[in-house]
Design a protein around this nucleic acid. Structure first.
Lengths: 298, 298
DNA sequence: GTAATAGTGTCTTTCAGACAGTATGAC
DNA sequence: GTCATACTGTCTGAAAGACACTATTAC
């Protein structure tokens, strides 16, 4: 068993175009992967700076918002460990950038994250692939011989069974249960899988990122990192809906966001295919006024 | 510059006794330190298991709840790097254990975390050391020549300036500003420091942990990890107050916790110095009923 | 006029926050 | 009875959630 450590940096770079949440991937093998880099201890002063540089070098993109997600270190998360390689640890990051990104290398692709997590998109009602057969498999897993009693609560909370509400933030919890029941391609034994796979454990890292974004928009004004300086309220709502995977009530959303002091009108108007919309900008002063200025509404 | 990496594990183990939040420290140098261990890639299947084993081996304690906090990797966070040592990265963990812990080695000490963060305890009103002189230093830092405009918002949100409310979760943000203004011993240049220092960057890690606990109790029933199987509501309230560093309204707290289905009475009573109190236990079913079952109340 | 998108008014229910009160024990 | 702690009732205002409505453009 090797005593070496190799440290990687796995950034999940997110952008939203119209109603589609996109994740930046590299296509250079069978499965899409995150634009991972490796940490060179001699070069960067902090892990975050290393992540920024790695992203810039690989895909020519400078991210604005970047936060650390989690450090993944399970043995054999990288198959090179089985053939005498070092232990591959990686620090996951979440990066947000606004607008479409140009000038990226040819093997870089922005992919709708719901291709990897189709069961997470409830904007047009319950996703069709999340059908009775999947629910039955989760229930079988709950009731399995020798299973811990906590499975009942984990399963109900993750998939909204037995009257529990759907929790949009429980992305990782759902992915992990689907992994355990063999409903994703990455599981060692699997059948009738859901969604498209990614390389290594990158879909798990993406699940962590989606869960984090969905939680974070509710108590920190991070959505604005994904929008241009000025935007319409409809644009803002569409962006939040894309991330959260749910629909919001228009008038409640407007009230929340305007009365809450999160945005302020610019006085400008923008032509649409109907009545022109007023444009707004983020009001950064809310950060000091309220402890948790975010968007959390049904 | 070395190209080596060394990975440590720095657990913040928390317990609450009566009204005192305690953190487990090791006293073997000038300053108390966290019971840090190093990660041996050949031994443990996951980072969390490695952290558990490290804690058990060092201080003979088996933690129940354990979650990853953050990975710290700033250059020179460990001074051994300056003399040709490897780059010392560390993964911080938060562990919670209930009840007093016996049988620990002699150099292990449970210390009231407010000795390191006296300005975080608002249970008896505004902490006296957080006086005008400190506020003046923060304001000077905000107004400094060439300072970024974001300092105004950071400072106001962290220290409740200009009408902003005190945010109990902003523990790390406050520590970082105090570091920048030289009001903590760990800062390279400092005077009139607040609180007791810890070794290396351990106080920063502890700040991260306190902020995380304070945030987490509001949306996850983690307090119960710190309490025995059955407890009185007064005990529960005292524990929450100890962690949050604020006082809560008794009747509102009771209503929240009982009507919210977080606890259920056992029917048993317990003698006190006044009327006997009913005992309660945690109702784990809430986890499936509500998306965010926690305790968040003034 | 219609279609399409933008934006407003208001009712109801829920719940946080604050008040003041009563209950049951030891002595 | 007093003292100490445990526990309850209820008022108020804010805000979430749901509903229906009006406004301004293109055609």
């Amino acid at each position: 068993m090797s005593a070496e450590i190799a440290l990687g940096l796995d950034p999940v770079i997110v952008s939203v175009v119209d109603t589609v949440p996109l994740v930046l991937t590299v296509i250079d093998g069978e499965r899409p992967r995150l634009p991972a880099g490796s940490f060179d201890p001699g070069r960067d002063r902090t892990l975050e700076l290393a992540a920024r540089r790695s992203i810039d070098e690989q895909v020519g993109v400078e991210v604005g918002y970047l936060e650390q997600l989690y450090t993944f270190g399970d043995r054999f998360r990288d198959p090179r460990e089985t053939t005498g390689g070092p232990r591959f640890l990686t620090v996951g990051y979440l990066g947000l950038i606004g607008g479409p990104v140009l000038g990226a290398p040819a093997n870089v692709a922005w992919i709708d994250w719901y291709r990897f997590f189709p069961w997470e998109d409830w904007r047009r009602g319950r996703p069709p692939m999340l059908d009775q057969s999947v629910v039955d498999r989760v229930r079988a897993w709950i009731a399995a011989d020798g299973a811990d009693d906590t499975r009942r609560i984990r399963g109900a909370a993750a998939f909204g069974l037995d009257g529990a509400p759907w929790n949009d933030e429980a992305v990782l919890e759902r992915y992990e249960i689907l992994y355990e029941i063999g409903a994703v391609d990455e599981a060692p034994v699997h059948h009738d899988v859901l969604g498209e796979p990614m390389a290594l454990d990158h879909r798990r890292i993406l699940a962590t990122a989606i869960g984090r974004v969905r939680a974070k928009i509710k108590y920190r004004p991070v959505v604005f990192e994904l929008l241009p300086e000025s935007f319409t309220l409809w644009q803002l709502q569409r962006t939040v809906e894309a991330l959260a995977g749910t629909r919001l009530h228009k008038s409640n959303f407007r009230r929340f966001v305007e009365d809450g002091g999160l945005v302020v009108g610019t006085g400008q108007r923008r032509a649409t295919s109907g009545r022109p919309a007023e444009t707004f900008r983020f009001r950064s002063e809310v950060m000091a006024e309220r402890p948790h200025p975010g968007i959390g509404l049904r």
